[in-house]
Design a protein around this nucleic acid. Structure first.
Length: 611
RNA sequence: GCCACCCUAGCUCAAUCGGCAGAGCAAACGCUUCGUAAGCGUUAGGUUAAGGGUUCAACUCCCUUGGGUGGCUCCA
């Protein structure tokens, strides 16, 4: 049932695991563990695998780790590496292993697992019979499957770093009910240049952090009094969000969607019927009582939308029905999980639900996929891949009959194939009511963000007993497609900020043009031109502050305003403006009318470039 | 929620060992009127997140609470 793309992911992982870089990182993790144990002989060691971009090792340490400790450990690691120790593998019996790791409770637990079989030293399931092996370099011997480099000399001591990231807490075996260990992250590369490049990328990501840029250009803020995870949109942020919403609203209208509006709360019974309440109780806010009846904040919009569908008897001639709403939902996220605009407690989804017949399913799904790709391309997120999320066969957090799941999964895969999408299939990524197709974009720094989602649902129509009257005059059950393109407006804006580093395409810039007079006597002309631009539909501000021209240019540049129009005597004479872009490019003087034509064209075509 | 760290003016940050809370930007006011990334000056701005404790003395040490950061867990 799984198509070839799963194999593709597997091969990428396999290629990494077979690589020299993987062995270097795995070996550096061992070297780090040795250095840590030398410093803290009473430390307990857990596991230390390579990860994307580096490695980590988890320890149970006698005290919190300081920056100085990290510097010291890193220094010692370089010494160990330079000493040129061989990595020596040996296979041991469970009994020998237990003797070897006496006093290391985490290792002993791992050995138990290995002996029982079926689980490797990282707790991952494996079908192969497990051989217990160890690797030793210098004084340090670790329970490990490998592979490693032959000698520490293969590690470049100037291409490793463990101080770039603060030590972090991590649960033993990823279980929040178990011990909290100290995780030290490290990164290791083959050359110092690669390390420098990686560290620069982290710097760049920091500079693009939407929380920082959002503050700098005045898009949003948070208030202690309002509460954590509840963003407040300032005027410029609200303009940006409104532009995105308006664009999508217009496109949806032209593609047969009908806008609806629903309230933010509902009776708990609604979510008991939908199945949200029992399944996701932990991530919902406590119900509150109103006149003896329990209500709650809505964690999803679908049940509300379904009630509108149910308000009328539907004929097959009415279908598909496509209801769209920018619906605000509230979900309880643990305080430590909150993060800027990307993880919040109240957010607005560009939600829509399509009710269709089984015969219409494929066509409707493909139409949504087309819409998704049109929107992503329009906003400049042109690098994306897709993921088919299916049930985790081990988990019981799903509702409904196998048959519906099977149909839905097959329909999604058929559509993805038909569209020629580059996709992977991943278990456990389904919604609780159905499988889905997610679009994952890659931003300017090649980081991935899950944005759009299309979900096929046989379950909620059954739970709510949805019907339509078919050609045969019999009652039939419609299928629902849930979809969101931006996903959540909050998260989407965050992604846009980081992707464009705050320098949005002109059509999305909260302020598109700033008028900068050379001297105060040019202010009247600046205001006149501003009025003309405003009439032409451009968002323009006049910088009438006390500073000098240079300062105003600097200020507009840091605010990432696309066009600066500098006006002085020379421009007034010719009814012109001198155009400077936020990139610093000087386009020289042009007639006001010409600027309006050019700028309007760039805005209307949603061009990514300003010239 | 858990582990670690942090919170000083609107913003970004100083303040040696526990000994008089300070700067830049922004703001207000004044001077300057200037052609492509910061003109000059003056003023104002603080219960050092809040509360408690130790001390002759707390921004500094301890505790509680709130908020933030990096991770973990979670993310329908």
């Amino acid at each position: 049932m799984l198509p070839g793309s799963e194999e593709k992911v597997f091969t990428i992982m396999q290629r990494y695991q077979d690589s020299q870089l993987y062995r270097i990182r795995h070996s550096t993790a061992h070297v780090m563990a040795q250095a840590v144990l030398e410093k803290f002989p009473e430390a307990k060691i857990a596991i230390g695998p390579p990860i994307e971009d580096g490695f980590y090792y988890d320890f149970d340490l006698p005290r919190p780790l300081t920056e100085e400790d990290q510097v010291e450990i890193e220094k010692r690691m370089r010494e160990i590496i330079r000493e040129g120790h061989e990595f020596i593998r040996r296979e041991v019996s469970a009994k020998e292993a237990r003797a070897l790791f006496k006093g290391q409770p985490y290792k002993l637990e791992l050995i138990d697992g290995l002996e029982r079989g079926g689980v490797d030293e990282y707790g991952e399931k494996t079908d192969e019979p497990v051989v217990i092996s160890t690797y030793r370099q210098d004084t340090f011997e670790d329970l490990c499957r490998g592979p490693h480099v032959a000698n520490t000399r293969e590690i470049n001591p100037d291409a490793i770093n463990i101080t770039f990231k603060a030590p972090a807490g991590a649960y033993w075996r990823g279980d929040e009910n178990r011990e909290m260990l100290t995780r030290i992250y490290g990164t290791a590369w083959q050359t110092p240049e690669q390390l420098a490049e990686y560290l620069e990328l982290l710097e760049e990501a920091k500079k693009r952090d939407h929380r920082r840029i959002g503050q700098e250009i005045g898009l949003f803020t948070f208030s202690q009094l309002v509460g954590k995870g509840l963003p407040l949109w300032k005027p410029k942020g609200a303009v940006l969000r409104d532009l995105l919403e308006r664009f999508l609203r217009d496109v949806q209208l032209s593609r047969g969607y009908e806008p609806i509006l629903t309230p933010h709360i509902a009776r708990v019974r609604l979510f008991e019927t939908s199945g949200h309440y029992p399944y996701y109780k932990d991530s919902q806010y406590s119900p509150f009582e109103v006149e003896g009846e329990l209500f709650m904040l809505k964690p999803m919009n679908c049940p509300h939308h379904i009630q509108i569908y149910k308000d009328e008897l539907r004929s097959y001639r009415d279908l598909p029905v496509r209801y769209a709403e920018f619906g605000t939902v509230y979900r309880y996220e643990k305080s430590g999980e909150l993060h800027g605009l990307t993880r919040v407690r109240g957010f607005t989804q560009d939600d829509a639900h399509i009710f269709c017949t089984p015969e219409q399913l494929e066509e409707e799904f493909l139409k949504v996929a087309d819409l998704v790709e049109f929107i992503l391309n329009s906003v400049g997120l042109t690098d994306f891949r897709a993921r088919v999320g299916i049930r985790d066969p081990e988990s019981d957090k799903y509702v409904g009959e196998d048959e519906g799941w099977e149909h839905a999964t097959q329909a999604i895969i058929a559509c993805a194939d038909k569209r020629g999408l580059d996709y992977t299939v991943e278990e456990g990524e389904a919604a609780f009511y159905g499988p889905k197709l997610d679009y994952i974009i890659r931003d300017a720094l090649k980081r991935e963000w899950q944005i759009s989602t299309i979900q096929v649902d046989y379950n909620l129509p059954a739970r709510f007993e949805l019907e339509y009257v078919g050609e045969d005059n019999e009652r039939h059950r419609p299928i629902m497609i849930h979809r969101a393109l931006y996903g959540s407006m909050e998260r989407f804006v965050a992604v846009m900020i980081e992707h464009f580093a705050g320098a949005f395409p002109a059509w999305l810039s909260p302020v598109q043009v700033v008028m900068i007079p050379v001297a105060d006597r040019h202010l009247d002309y600046a205001r006149e031109v501003a009025a003309q631009l405003r009439d032409a539909g451009l968002r323009v501000e006049v910088d009438d502050s006390a500073g000098r021209m240079g300062g105003k240019i600097r200020s507009a540049t840091t605010q990432k305003i696309p066009w600066m129009l500098i006006v002085g005597d020379r421009d007034i004479e010719k009814s012109a403006v001198s155009v400077r872009l936020r990139s610093g490019e000087d386009l020289g003087a042009m007639h006001v009318a010409d600027f309006i034509t050019q700028a309007s064209h760039i805005v209307e075509t949603k061009a990514l470039q300003l010239a």
